[in-house]
Design a protein around this nucleic acid. Structure first.
Length: 797
RNA sequence: GCCCGAGUGGCGGAAUGGCAGACGCAGCGGACUCAAAAUCCGCCGGGGGCGACCCCGUACGAGUUCGACUCUCGUCUCGGGCACCA
């Protein structure tokens, strides 16, 4: 190979092969003394392959992992494929190829691309969620939750597309219509489905967000989780109705109880039937029919016009003693609070709109200053004081209690689909719901060809009798399998636990391995998973902790959300047609240049704009370093004494780069390297010690390039067996510094003084400076502010 | 509507409250070349001055401070998330 010309393709092929041969990226998982688990979100292997956004995310995480390795950690950086799920299945249906045939080809392509960009992946521990050796344990996980009482079955509303003949996820419903059939209105159906009791964990999921020892996360991500958990403090209050029944409501405004002039129940509320008078029966039934026909999505976010129907019944306001009418309306949701509200039209916009439409009375009970009025003994209190006082009164009188509500709902994990792990449950006429014995796992997903969903509302698996019928594990009589598969988010809720233990086929995760490597040291991923994936993973870890399976209850000690790559001002997406395919850039410029460019275009946590022109800069930079290394090898040009300015810049660069990389400000680290190289070139210096440090610091960004340079410098071992350089704080500042001289806060001049000069000396130098004097002449210096080695401000007047 | 995040040259962006625009891209001028590419040297926020230099400038308006891109309050714009959550 020519030493003079940098040929990325040759260099990259050489080092990728050598890393594989020598196991460079394979830490000793059983004996690592400084283990560092560097995790990135595993991709869904689409047919299109990895795009620039994926490459950006993976490279940024890889840079950090390589940096930690150079700091002396044993870094485990695994990768895998999130290959089950509705995306893969829908794509398979669209192109008419079975997903089991489609996915391996996609994975093969992803694997090629991931190797191509030079990630520090430990390929011994690759996994795919579709592998029976993996989903066996996903099913095992379900059984542990079932045994712990954290999984249960109940009826719940789902979106149903009559054209697709299947259940849709909420994201697949666009304004009440099917994503794939824009003319077909989505309906609501009620099916019996499996749920996990995540809402039991709401307070713990919330509390840990504030515990930095367990959870050091991007603020945007923890804020998103806080909002999603949706904690509200308030009260549950009972309103008496006829026949000794009560309507229980939840409110965050117990202070407005005296202003509650009517009640509203969700149309599905179980008391509606009993409360409906004969005269109103027909209207109520019609309204309920309309509400239940509407899909789940538009029921929530569709047109906001408030509609409702009077039930014919009245309830007694426990504070005023007045009888108030009970209505039903679909703006009240059955799955939040108690499914019933006390309406306070004077102080709630929705209630006001409803009251105005139907001519219901509006009674203000809070004045403009936030003081409660017309509320008996609570009048005159502030809103906050009244909340407390009303709750105390409710509790004393037995009419209600103070409660905390969360928006978080239990996690529905049933999918009436094919491409997922079958839920490992069996239904027996005599023994009811029976879990599949753990020894019988995995319940293999049968390789059926008619995997498309049909009209029945049950999974395609139900059509296959040879699979569907199974002996009851208890009595051996003919029983039926659960035909739903589990949510993809269950696959990804525990994959980090599997990675260190992929070679064990008799346990999901080895206890020693898990203790050594978990929780994950640093997790980097997209904020689109701020709630679902990251929340579900936390919940699963808590359950596993509580049943004694793992020692931690938070899976990701540190999480950082990376930014988005945009193109032409818009997020990259297929529909916009602005997706950039990385392969051609890598072929033209080399993987290292591509990595450098991605890391240079903006702060990693903010993302940036992908522009073709920008990529030549990092390539020119690498070419310069290549030349510098060549010069260093031939003739270590300023060997002996290095110029002072270079020593200073060298130490500054180490400092800046160390701090920038640790803070994921990769663009700043690269800029620092460029400045150092520019100076070395100006000074015609290729001092060996400086060049060697530069190559090491460059290694996380341009790993193949750095390895090659390291070898050219005469080394036989991998550059990743080196240690990241350290700086000497005393050598970060020049012996002579230029201090800015301000007059009344405006910079007017500079003076050069010895480093760490005292204020009086700097002031003397300033008063000898001609430019400064022009602004000070004839005026009295009333005050001086001195910032050591930086600035002197003279306040004159 | 609510909650985050962000507004700095032609562009991407840099600045523990201390010389705004580092670094890179693009552009302009020059060197080398028969020529082009590559490479190298120089210029590169706006305005004024022959010049040393001066004035203005970090979305907008106030404030705190000796000093504000940075902190506080308000306004506007963009991006993202949540959303009939009582």
């Amino acid at each position: 190979m020519s030493d003079e010309i940098y040929q990325p393709d040759v260099v990259e092929a050489k080092w990728q092969a050598r890393w594989a041969e020598q196991g460079t990226n394979e830490p000793d998982l059983d004996h690592a003394e400084r283990p560092f688990y560097n995790l990135m979100m595993f991709p869904y292997p689409s047919a299109e392959g990895l795009h620039v956004g994926n490459m950006f995310a993976f490279t940024g995480s890889d840079v950090y992992g390589r940096f930690k390795r150079l700091q002396g950690y044993q870094v485990f950086e695994p990768i895998g494929f999130d290959a089950f799920g509705i995306h893969s299945e829908n794509f398979a249906i669209k192109v008419g190829t079975h997903p089991a045939r489609l996915i391996p080809a996609n994975i093969e392509n992803f694997r090629r691309q991931l190797k191509q960009i030079g990630g520090m992946f430990d390929w011994r521990h690759e996994l795919s969620t579709t592998d029976p050796a993996y989903y066996r344990w996903t099913q095992w996980l379900f059984l542990q939750l079932f045994k712990a009482g954290k999984a249960y079955k109940r009826f719940a509303a789902v979106n149903w597309c009559p054209e697709c003949k299947t259940v849709l996820a909420n994201e697949q419903v666009i304004n009440g219509f099917c994503e794939r059939h824009p003319e077909t209105r989505v309906e609501q159906r009620t099916l019996e489905q499996w749920f996990f009791r995540i809402s039991e964990y709401a307070d713990r999921l919330l509390a840990n967000l504030d515990d930095r020892t367990k959870l050091d996360w991007s603020e945007t991500t923890s804020t998103a989780q806080r909002n999603w958990l949706g904690r509200s403090e308030g009260a549950e209050i009972d309103f008496a109705v006829e026949h000794n029944r009560v309507i229980r409501v939840f409110t965050t405004r117990p202070d407005t109880l005296y202003g509650a002039t009517f009640m509203v129940l969700a149309p599905e509320h179980p008391l509606v039937g009993d409360l409906t008078s004969t005269a109103q029966r027909e209207a109520v039934q019609a309204y309920r029919a309309v509400a239940s026909a509407r899909d789940v999505v538009s029921r929530r976010v569709g047109e906001r016009e408030k509609t409702g129907v009077f039930t014919g019944s009245f309830a007694k306001n426990p504070a005023t003693g007045r009888m108030i009418p009970v209505w039903i309306a679909d703006y009240v949701l059955m799955d939040y609070g108690t499914g019933a509200i006390m309406a306070v039209p004077a102080h709630d916009e929705r209630d006001r709109e409803f009251a105005e439409r139907y001519g219901l009375s509006i009674v203000p009970v809070v004045d403009d200053n936030g003081i409660v009025i017309d509320s008996d003994r609570f009048s005159g209190l502030t809103v906050d004081a009244a909340k407390t006082a009303v709750i105390r009164w409710l509790e004393q009188s037995g009419a209600g209690t103070g409660v905390v509500q969360y928006k978080l709902h239990d996690w529905c994990i049933s999918r009436q689909r094919y491409w997922g792990p079958p839920i490992p449950m069996i239904y027996c006429d005599d023994h009811g719901v029976v879990p599949v014995p753990e020894a019988d796992l995995p319940v293999i997903l049968p390789p059926i060809e008619d995997f498309r969903p049909d009209d029945s509302g049950i999974s395609p698996l139900a059509r296959h009798e040879e699979w569907y019928y199974v002996p009851c594990p208890v009595c051996g009589k003919r029983a039926r399998r659960e035909t739903d598969v589990s949510d993809t988010f269950l696959d990804s809720a525990w994959y980090y636990l599997r990675y260190p233990s992929t070679e064990f086929d008799d346990r999901p995760f080895d206890a020693d391995r898990t203790r050594r490597w978990c929780p994950v040291t640093t997790y980097i991923g997209g904020n689109e998973h701020a709630v679902l994936h990251l929340l579900y993973s936390r919940f699963i870890a808590m359950v596993l902790h509580d049943i004694g399976q793992v020692q931690f209850d938070e899976p990701f000690a540190r999480f950082r959300a990376h930014g988005l790559i945009v193109k032409d001002g818009a997020k990259m997406s297929k529909s916009r047609g602005n997706v950039v395919v990385p392969d051609e850039y890598i072929a033209r410029w080399g993987a290292d240049t591509f990595r450098m460019y991605l890391m240079f275009l903006g702060p990693f946590q903010e993302g940036g704009d992908f522009r073709d022109e920008g990529i030549s800069g990092p390539r020119r930079f690498l070419d310069k370093v290549w030349t510098l290394v060549g010069e260093c090898v031939r003739d270590d040009m300023c060997g002996g004494e290095i110029r002072r300015a270079i020593v200073i810049k060298w130490h500054q660069t180490v400092k800046r780069a160390t701090e920038a990389v640790e803070g994921l400000r990769y663009n700043s680290a690269i800029a620092a390297y460029m400045e150092l190289v520019n100076l070395l070139r100006e000074e015609r210096c290729s001092e060996r010690a400086v060049v060697a440090d530069l190559v090491v610091m460059l290694a996380p960004f341009a790993p193949h390039f750095a390895e090659e340079c390291w070898e050219r410098l005469g080394h036989r071992t991998s550059v990743f067996d080196e240690l990241w350089p350290e700086w000497d704080e005393r050598l970060v500042v020049e012996e002579e510094v230029e201090v800015a001289v301000q007059v009344n806060g405006k910079t007017r001049s500079t003076v050069t003084v010895p480093r760490d000069s005292v204020e009086a000396d700097v002031a003397a130098a300033a008063m000898a400076d001609e430019t400064t004097l022009r602004f000070v002449a004839g005026k009295e210096v009333r005050k001086r502010i001195y910032v050591s080695n930086r600035l002197l401000n003279l306040v004159v007047g």
